[in-house]
Structure formats: C-alpha cells, structure tokens
C-alpha cells in the first residue's frame, strides 16, 4: 500500500507541475497579447509577475518531485526517464519568463505592422506546449497512446519555424523605417518566442523515446 501511495503521490505532483507550466504559458500568452494590443509597460510588468510566480512554483514542484523520486520508491529506469522529461519540460516556462523579461528590460516596442504575426507565433507556441502537456499527462494514464499528441507538437513546431522566418523577413526587408538596433532586438524577441516550440519539440522527442523503450 505504501508503494501504491508513493506512485499516486508522484503522479499527483507531476499533474500539478504540468498545471503550473500551463498556467505560466497562459499568463505569457495573455501578457503578450495585451502588450501587442496596447504596449503598456506597467501592465506587462504585472503579467511578468504572474509568469514569474507560476514559473517559480513549477520549479518548486519540480524539486519536490526530484526529492520524491530519489526516496527509492521508483524504479531506476522510470526515475531516469521522468527526471529527464522534467528537465526538458522545465525549459518551456523558463523561456516564457525570459521573453517577458526581455521585453521589459530591453523596452522592446512591437510595431503594429508586426503585432498580428508575433501574436500568431505566440498562439502557435502556446498550442504546441498544450499538445506537449497533453502527451506528458498521457504517460501517466495511457502511456502507449502518449505519442499521439506528439505528432501535433511536431506540426506546430514546423509552423512556428515558418512564422519565425517570415517575421525575420518582415523585420529586415519590409520595415525600412525601423532603427537597426530595434530590428536586432525584434529578431531576438522572435527567436526567443520561437524557442518555446523548439523546447516543446525536444521534450516531445523524449516522450517518444520513453514510449519506444517500453514498446512491446
């Protein structure tokens, strides 16, 4: 019974962790949308605080899970897989926090001509991470079907890549009025937003390996 409750505890903590990652991502999505519609630094700071809070809580949960994992209640193979996956997923909230921080500290203004495409990129990254989280949760309910959603992660990551390159073109070819430094900052911003889907894809690849290792 002790062993069963330990497993349930791990699954519960992991579920809470994914909820926090999702909350972090939602706050990031809302924050960027609001900033694109109305570039208000104070409002953005509030949203950044929300992202930071969720990211910190996700970090705390990850550490708690790591401690439980090392209390010898999980088989070594499962432990290694889950810890690698946590490490990979953890890069997603870290990146969202970094993007928000970058806009705030570098005081990046998003031109109106680019805002709809940047919002579209954020939306695609958001959906990509949601698909990843669906897949990660499936590992603990129906692991053989966990890879179904990974195909969606790959599709969305490719879409994010296309949007990223389209935005680079827009920034450097179609916005002659922009200051060169502003262009470089915008390029960095786009690159970092697109990195969210890259991180999701990397974590998705790990899920694929975890399932493949257990394929019968």
């Amino acid at each position: 019974m002790f062993f069963i409750s330990k497993q349930k505890q791990i699954e519960l903590e992991l579920s809470r962790y994914y909820e926090k990652v999702n909350a972090c991502l939602t706050a990031f999505h809302d924050g960027i949308r609001q900033y694109c519609q109305k570039p208000d630094q104070d409002r953005l700071r509030e949203n950044f605080q929300a992202v930071h809070k969720h990211e910190s809580r996700a970090d705390d949960l990850r550490r708690e899970i790591e401690v439980i994992m090392y209390s010898k209640s999980v088989f070594p193979e499962s432990r290694g897989d889950i810890l690698s996956l946590l490490e990979a997923v953890d890069k997603v909230p870290n990146t969202t926090e970094w993007v928000m921080n970058m806009i705030l500290t570098h005081n990046i203004i998003i031109p109106e001509t680019l805002s709809s495409d940047i919002l579209e990129l954020v939306e695609v990254c958001y959906l990509c991470v949601r698909a990843l989280l669906d897949s990660a949760e499936k590992l603990f309910t129906d692991f053989t079907n966990a890879t179904v959603a990974i195909g969606r992660v790959d599709e969305l990551e490719t879409e994010a890549d296309h949007l990223e390159f389209r935005l680079y073109e827009q920034i450097f070819k179609k916005e002659p009025s922009l200051d060169p430094m502003h262009k470089i900052l915008l390029r960095e911003l786009v690159r970092n937003i697109a990195a969210i889907s890259d991180r999701a894809e990397n974590a998705g690849d790990l899920i694929r390996i975890i399932v493949a290792k257990r394929k019968t």
Binding site: F3, Q7, I10, E11, V74, F75, E77, S78, D81, L139, F140, T141, D142, F143, T144, N145, A146, I210, V211, R214, T216
Partner: peptide, 16 residues
C-alpha cells in the same frame, strides 16, 4: 500491456 491503458509507472512496477 498494449491494450490495457495504464501509467508508465504502473507498467514499470508490474515488470520490475
């Protein structure tokens, strides 16, 4: 293992 939905932890526990 293929047709009964289960957590990867349950699966690992059964096997090990």
């Amino acid at each position: 293992f293929k047709h009964i939905p289960m957590s990867m932890l349950t699966r690992d526990k059964i096997i090990w």
